[in-house]
Design a protein around this nucleic acid. Structure first.
Length: 454
RNA sequence: GUGGGUAUAGCUUAGUCGGUUAAAGCGCCGGAUUGUGGUUCCGGAGACCGAGGGUUCGAGUCCCUUUACCCACCCCA
């Protein structure tokens, strides 16, 4: 009989057990970190009515939406977590306490061509702070600290959080008389790192019709080396939006040290703008120092009006989104995933070797009460196969209950890494294992301290 | 959406000018070792060469079609 070939769709990521454990560990660390800053968890449906999801309409996002009908229903898979948040907040505004801080970690879907580091189904880890009518700039200032600590909790060290403020760009382009082209100019300038100043200049003049002098001015500001605030100072007092942007950017950078963000992990970068047009102030973008080619793994910013398509209530917010799937993919690809992390499904494999399994069950129960993950191996296989099972799954301890042990009322524990065996009372061994495991479990999932070079 | 590339064992790949039995490493299974895994040694299973059609005495190899996947652009996490 011919079989259907098992396959996974392009752009969808599936992990083997050990990797999945690692991924889940990263998710857990992010949840812990977000919780430390007072964010509350939120889960929303994967599927929404197309009317709700596409309220904004138009643009590239609409083309990338997975959309289908089921009976009379016109449904769409969410393509980010921000639109569902907007719906949720608009719907529940009366019952929420503002500023509303939520985090959400979930899958989103984009029907675009997959490629390296670019998925069609992927996890985003979002945090957002939503204000009712107003939201202080202090919330923006808190974001870099959260990003830093979140990545730090994962074990990442080599990354840079880049920050800019859209008001600065908007105001500057007003000064230069480029307001009508502001969006396109920002998007072009955003490519500076990738294609270089000459090509950016060419694109500005040839494709966008920017006057050469204005293009030169655009590049002059963003190419400034040294303290970016010195460059910005030259234009002070000429445009209210620009001045506001500069003061907001100052506010965001002022307390970085107090928030615990090292200078090496932060940079004001006047080129970043984010393609998404709903950002109106602070913008963030985070890249891995050793892998800029993969693009941003965490970005976000300030928006004036989250839910304008659903309600008249003005709901400004600031938030970020971590591309967890992309991040995980890059880290695995580059060998940064820390294999020392305990990815075994259990801490102890309890192996009964006689027909009487009651002692094995008792031991497993006692271990679990101590918080030690115990699995009973009940297959009637050869002894070596029982050990091989533990070995292949990376289970660090095997508890052996053979005739000798049962007769003596004891248990033999084998440490699979050292090969050492000790025989003692069950209670004594349980405590010992718990203590040994605590060290292992403190390990972080990622180790990017030593970048691997081909 | 646009442009390029690839398809051979579970995985990564080799396969000469079209020639007879499609090769290797890794992995898997078994044994050496019936209460000791991970190392080593020995043995074994596993491939209608992506699918369909064509040229030919003969196709993994050449041609056409198709599907899937990969890479890049656009855009993004």
């Amino acid at each position: 009989m011919s079989k259907v070939t098992p396959r996974t769709l392009s752009g969808f990521m599936e992990l083997l057990p050990a990797r999945q454990v690692q991924f889940d560990l990263m998710v857990a660390r992010l949840r812990e970190t977000f919780s430390l800053y007072g964010f509350t968890p939120l889960d929303t449906p994967l599927l929404e009515s197309s009317e709700v999801l596409l309220a904004k309409g138009g643009g590239d996002t609409e083309k990338q939406i997975y959309r289908f009908t089921k009976g009379e229903s016109d449904l769409s898979l969410r393509f980010d977590l921000t639109v569902p948040l907007a719906k949720y907040v608009a719907q529940n505004a009366g019952q929420l306490v503002f500023p509303f801080r939520r985090f959400q970690i979930g899958k989103v879907y984009r029907g675009e061509r997959a490629q390296r580091g670019r998925f069609r189904e992927f996890y985003q880890a979002d945090i957002d702070i939503i204000g009712d009518g107003e939201l202080g700039i202090g919330n923006d200032a808190e974001i870099p600290g959260i990003i830093y600590n979140a990545f730090n909790a994962l074990g990442l060290r080599n990354f840079v959080i880049r920050v800019n403020n859209r008001k600065i760009l908007t105001g500057y382009y007003e000064i230069l008389g480029l307001s009508d082209k502001a969006q396109d100019v920002m998007r072009t300038v955003d490519k500076l790192d990738k294609i270089g100043a000459d090509k950016v200049s060419a694109l500005l003049t040839d494709e966008l019709g920017v006057a050469p002098e204005a293009a030169a001015q655009v590049l002059a500001l963003i190419s400034h080396t040294g303290d970016p605030f010195d460059a910005l100072e030259q234009y002070a007092g000429r445009n209210a939006t620009f001045d506001l942007g500069v003061s907001e950017l100052r506010a965001v950078t002022r307390d970085l040290a107090a928030f615990g963000v090292p200078e090496a992990n932060f940079r004001v970068d006047l080129t970043i703008a984010r393609g998404l047009d709903y950002y109106t102030g602070t913008v963030f973008e985070t890249t891995l120092t050793a892998h800029p080619e993969i693009g941003s793994i965490c970005s976000g910013g300030r928006y004036d009006d989250l839910a304008g398509y659903y309600t008249d209530r003005k709901l400004p917010g600031v938030g970020i989104s971590i591309g967890l799937t992309r991040l995980f993919f890059v880290l695995e690809d580059c060998g940064y995933l820390n294999d020392a992390v305990l990815t075994a499904p259990a801490d102890v494999l309890v192996v009964p070797m006689t027909d009487d399994t009651s002692h094995a069950v008792q031991l497993a129960t006692a271990l679990r009460k101590l918080g030690v993950r115990a699995q009973i191996y009940s297959e009637n296989k050869k002894f070596k196969q029982k050990l091989a099972y533990a070995d292949r799954l990376g289970i660090p301890f095997v508890a052996l209950l053979g005739e000798d042990e049962l007769a003596a009322g004891k248990v033999t524990i084998k440490d699979m890494r050292s090969g050492e065996q000790t025989t003692a009372s069950a209670a004594l061994l349980c405590e010992g294992i718990r203590d040994k495991l605590s060290g292992l479990k403190a390990a972080k999932p990622i180790n990017d301290a030593k970048p691997i070079v081909d």
